[in-house]
Protein backbone atom coordinates (compact mmCIF):
# COMPACT_ATOMS: atom_id res chain seq x y z
CA UNK A 1 0.00 0.00 0.00
CA UNK A 2 2.77 2.42 1.04
CA UNK A 3 4.86 1.46 -1.94
CA UNK A 4 1.95 2.08 -4.27
CA UNK A 5 1.46 5.56 -2.91
CA UNK A 6 5.17 6.38 -3.38
CA UNK A 7 5.02 5.22 -7.01
CA UNK A 8 1.89 7.28 -7.57
CA UNK A 9 3.58 10.34 -6.15
CA UNK A 10 6.62 9.88 -8.42
CA UNK A 11 4.43 9.49 -11.46
CA UNK A 12 2.39 12.53 -10.44
CA UNK A 13 5.54 14.61 -10.01
CA UNK A 14 7.04 13.52 -13.30
CA UNK A 15 3.84 14.07 -15.26
CA UNK A 16 3.22 17.58 -14.02
CA UNK A 17 6.90 18.53 -13.94
CA UNK A 18 6.74 19.69 -10.32
CA UNK A 19 9.82 20.31 -8.20
CA UNK A 20 10.54 16.95 -6.62
CA UNK A 21 11.41 18.24 -3.12
CA UNK A 22 7.90 19.63 -2.72
CA UNK A 23 5.87 16.60 -3.56
CA UNK A 24 8.22 13.83 -2.57
CA UNK A 25 9.21 15.37 0.76
CA UNK A 26 12.82 15.05 -0.20
CA UNK A 27 15.40 17.31 1.37
CA UNK A 28 17.09 19.99 -0.70
CA UNK A 29 20.71 20.42 0.20
CA UNK A 30 22.45 23.53 -1.11
CA UNK A 31 26.18 23.71 -0.60
CA UNK A 32 28.56 26.57 -1.06
CA UNK A 33 31.92 24.96 -1.69
CA UNK A 34 32.71 22.97 1.40
CA UNK A 35 32.00 25.71 3.94
CA UNK A 36 28.23 25.97 3.94
CA UNK A 37 25.43 23.52 3.64
CA UNK A 38 21.82 24.62 3.60
CA UNK A 39 19.47 21.73 4.26
CA UNK A 40 15.79 22.30 3.68
CA UNK A 41 12.91 20.02 4.36
CA UNK A 42 14.59 17.68 6.80
CA UNK A 43 12.57 15.84 9.36
CA UNK A 44 14.57 16.20 12.52
CA UNK A 45 17.98 16.47 14.00
CA UNK A 46 19.40 13.31 15.49
CA UNK A 47 23.03 14.02 16.24
CA UNK A 48 25.00 17.22 16.15
CA UNK A 49 28.56 17.73 17.25
CA UNK A 50 31.68 19.62 16.19
CA UNK A 51 32.42 17.00 13.58
CA UNK A 52 29.12 15.43 12.67
CA UNK A 53 25.55 16.25 11.72
CA UNK A 54 22.95 13.54 11.37
CA UNK A 55 19.56 14.52 10.06
CA UNK A 56 16.47 12.43 9.58
CA UNK A 57 15.04 12.70 6.11
CA UNK A 58 12.33 11.00 4.17
CA UNK A 59 13.13 7.32 4.14
CA UNK A 60 16.49 7.51 5.83
CA UNK A 61 19.16 9.80 7.20
CA UNK A 62 21.72 12.18 5.86
CA UNK A 63 25.09 12.29 7.58
CA UNK A 64 27.46 15.20 7.12
CA UNK A 65 31.03 14.87 8.40
CA UNK A 66 33.64 17.56 8.78
CA UNK A 67 35.22 19.93 11.28
CA UNK A 68 34.24 22.97 13.33
CA UNK A 69 30.53 22.67 12.78
CA UNK A 70 28.24 25.48 13.88
CA UNK A 71 24.53 25.68 13.15
CA UNK A 72 24.29 29.21 11.79
CA UNK A 73 20.51 29.11 11.63
CA UNK A 74 17.78 26.74 12.73
CA UNK A 75 14.24 27.34 11.56
CA UNK A 76 11.44 24.81 11.56
CA UNK A 77 12.60 22.59 8.70
CA UNK A 78 15.75 24.36 7.57
CA UNK A 79 19.27 24.21 8.88
CA UNK A 80 22.24 26.26 7.80
CA UNK A 81 25.45 24.47 8.65
CA UNK A 82 28.80 26.18 8.72
CA UNK A 83 32.19 24.52 8.98
CA UNK A 84 34.55 22.47 6.87
CA UNK A 85 32.49 19.79 5.23
CA UNK A 86 34.26 16.62 4.31
CA UNK A 87 31.48 14.35 3.06
CA UNK A 88 27.73 13.99 2.75
CA UNK A 89 26.30 10.53 3.02
CA UNK A 90 22.79 9.24 2.49
CA UNK A 91 21.91 6.27 4.62
CA UNK A 92 18.94 4.05 4.30
CA UNK A 93 16.77 3.22 7.27
Amino acid sequence: MKKMRETLKTVFTNTFDLPSEVTLELPRITMIGSIHAYIENHQGLIVFSETELLLKIHQGNVRINGEGFVLKMMIDKDILLEGTIKDVKFEDE
Binding site: G44, L45, F48, S49, V70, L71, K72, M73, K77
Partner: peptide
Protein backbone atom coordinates in the same frame (compact mmCIF):
# COMPACT_ATOMS: atom_id res chain seq x y z
CA UNK B 1 22.27 15.15 23.40
CA UNK B 2 21.73 18.85 23.99
CA UNK B 3 21.29 19.43 20.24
CA UNK B 4 17.87 17.79 20.53
CA UNK B 5 16.69 20.71 22.56
CA UNK B 6 17.41 23.09 19.68
CA UNK B 7 15.68 20.69 17.31
CA UNK B 8 12.63 20.85 19.56
CA UNK B 9 12.85 24.61 19.61
CA UNK B 10 12.87 24.71 15.82
CA UNK B 11 9.83 22.49 15.68
CA UNK B 12 7.88 24.66 18.14
CA UNK B 13 8.66 27.75 16.10
CA UNK B 14 11.61 29.20 17.97
CA UNK B 15 14.34 30.02 15.51
CA UNK B 16 17.83 29.67 16.92
CA UNK B 17 21.22 30.47 15.50
CA UNK B 18 24.94 30.15 16.12
CA UNK B 19 24.37 26.77 17.72
CA UNK B 20 27.58 24.97 18.60
CA UNK B 21 28.44 22.08 20.82
CA UNK B 22 30.95 22.58 23.59
CA UNK B 23 31.17 18.95 24.63
CA UNK B 24 28.91 15.90 24.61
CA UNK B 25 26.62 17.28 27.29
CA UNK B 26 26.60 21.02 26.64
CA UNK B 27 25.65 23.22 23.71
CA UNK B 28 25.18 26.96 23.33
CA UNK B 29 22.95 28.86 20.97
Amino acid sequence: YPEHFFDMCARYGIPSWDVSKKNTTAAIG
